[in-house]
């Protein structure tokens, strides 16, 4: 199962529709919506937190939350 936490740096994924109930309200409000494009920009030195760009918002979130959110990786 692919989640935001399984992206590599620079890789892009799309939040899957089924992820809705696993996204905390706060993240949803900040633009982390199903269908949105997510890019993993950077991983902190100790592998946590993750620095992502989603829907135009640049956010740092913890791995714990990121690994709850399923994504579809682009096939090409």
């Amino acid at each position: 199962m692919n989640t935001i936490a399984s992206l590599r740096i620079g890789e892009i994924g799309y939040i899957s529709e089924g992820a809705l109930e696993f996204i905390p309200l706060k993240l949803l409000e900040m633009g982390c919506l199903p269908g949105a494009e997510v890019e993993l920009i950077q991983i902190a030195p100790l592998k946590d937190p993750l620095y992502i760009c989603v829907n135009g918002s640049h956010l740092a979130i913890r791995k714990e939350a990121a690994s709850q959110i399923q994504i579809l990786k682009s096939e090409f």
């Binding site: 905390p24 706060k26 900040m30 937190p49 620095y51 918002s57 640049h58 956010l59 740092a60 913890r62």
Partner: peptide, 8 residues
Amino acid sequence: SFFVVEMP
């Protein structure tokens, strides 16, 4: 403990 920070 919940953590989201926007990077300006």
